[in-house]
Design a protein around this nucleic acid. Structure first.
Lengths: 107, 107
DNA sequence: CGTGTAAGGAATTCTGACACG
DNA sequence: CGTGTAAGGAATTCTGACACG
């Protein structure tokens, strides 16, 4: 259930459509990739493909940019969140291992 | 909740990607549109755009075609299902109207 | 730093048509 | 009927660069 192939995550949208959807220029979208804020996949011949999640993230980025936040700051914030999530994941993993070894005690 | 703008229904996928996703040729995909089995939207400049739902429907169509079902048959089946659903919708609508006028009787 | 733009080429998509069957 | 293909043109996308600031 956590790893289901959701429509939201499938990378299938071309840059032109992403531009329509977000109101950002293709130049901006490519630049945010260069700054490692967004990670499209590539089609066999090299065309960028984005997911709906990417589109949402781009809209968040656009909002922050309008508030004057620099791409570098946005990047740092992203990394902080990732580390926090990784921490939570390790915690859950540990809990799972403990359960696997000692079983569920109650009942 | 029935009319939420789901990712599954948003028409954002170009024909090339749909071709990759379904394994169908672009020729086939355009032909099924001509036969009224599929209804892409168009971008401002006329490029077809499909949804994930369209992609799934195309895979269903592909399966039926492999079984030898003709596009005309597939079309008829589609229309039958649509009429059936329209009937159910009218039924629910009626139920709603009755409730609105007479209220929920129990309690 | 963030974005626009012109440049040149390659890949995409579109339509209408001919072909085969 | 269903699909392939060649045709010609228009729109898309890509990269690297110059510009401004």
């Amino acid at each position: 259930m956590a790893g289901s192939p959701s429509y939201k995550e499938r990378k299938v949208i071309t840059i032109g459509v992403v531009s329509e959807l977000t109101g950002l220029s293709e130049r901006q979208i490519r630049y945010y990739e260069e700054r490692k804020l967004i990670f499209p996949e590539r089609s066999p011949k090299g065309n960028r493909k984005y997911s709906f999640l990417d589109v949402e993230q781009l809209m968040d980025i656009a909002n922050k940019r309008e508030e004057g936040v620099q791409t570098y700051e946005i990047r740092q914030e992203m990394l902080r969140k990732e580390r926090k999530e990784a921490k939570l994941n390790r915690k859950e993993l540990l809990r799972g291992e403990i359960n696997a070894r000692f079983g569920i005690q109650r009942e």
